[in-house]
């Protein structure tokens, strides 16, 4: 795989648990730098962040244990572009149904998400999905014990549905899917996210950082 351009955006992938490697590959495939984020200091100089698929309860607990909860909440409030798939979508929600009561969330999206809404693993499925803002025909979407979006706020744009269930949303610089675009080799969602990262105002920390040209 070709090395990303030196001026390509640096996108962090939260690497506490989940399918980190697949997101890293997809980001490299669309020409971004990918950085694994396990500690708050790993956030220095990133222009965007991906929250991968995984177990949202596990990731939530590890966010708390390794002191990432507040730094990430702060960064999202400050406008850091974020893309969450599946568990990542849950973490970005304002509220979660069928979660654990003590499950910490990052917020960033004015949505209510129902966890494991499509059922257990035997109900997991793939489907062709038309997505607003993604040209070139439908996306093959893989849903694994997937959530859906039950309520959306006024600021939230719905990008895609399965039947009448909302499964892809965007609010400003925050993007989320109930499915896993990182599993199929189709990198159009990651392209969309990197476009968002590139067009976002340079995020506060990077402006203060040294020697970074954009």
């Amino acid at each position: 795989m070709a090395m990303p351009r030196t001026d390509a955006p640096r996108v962090g992938v939260l690497a506490l648990q989940g399918d980190v490697r697949e997101h890293v590959r997809a980001l490299l495939a669309v020409g971004a730098h990918a950085v694994e984020v396990r500690r708050a200091s790993d956030l220095d100089g990133v222009d965007g962040l991906v929250l991968p698929g995984g177990e949202s309860t596990t990731i939530g607990r590890l966010l708390r244990v390794f002191d990432l909860l507040e730094p990430l909440r702060g960064a999202i409030v400050d406008g850091l572009p974020v893309f969450g798939s599946c568990a990542g979508m849950i973490l970005l929600a304002r509220d979660v149904l069928d979660g654990r009561p003590d499950q910490p969330l990052l917020g960033g999206l004015d949505v209510v998400v129902r966890r494991n809404a499509f059922g257990r693993q035997v109900d997991s499925f793939e489907a062709e999905l038309d997505l607003a803002g993604v040209a070139g025909g439908p996306v093959r979407a893989v849903f694994i014990r997937a959530p859906w979006v039950e309520k959306v706020g006024d600021e939230v744009e719905v990008l895609g549905r399965v039947g009448d269930r909302t499964v892809a949303v965007r609010q400003d610089n925050v993007l989320a899917t109930a499915f896993h675009p990182e599993l199929t080799g189709d990198t159009r969602m990651h392209e969309l996210f990197v476009d968002i990262v590139e067009s976002a105002k340079p995020w506060k920390k990077t402006v203060e950082g040294m020697g970074r040209d954009r």
Binding site: G18, Q121, V142, T184
Partner: peptide, 24 residues
Amino acid sequence: PGVGGTHVGTARVKRGMAEMLKGG
């Protein structure tokens, strides 16, 4: 094949579940 052109039990869905457990 399920409702609305969805497919359960594909290799990708089965293997994908294990991908989500990584690092755990």
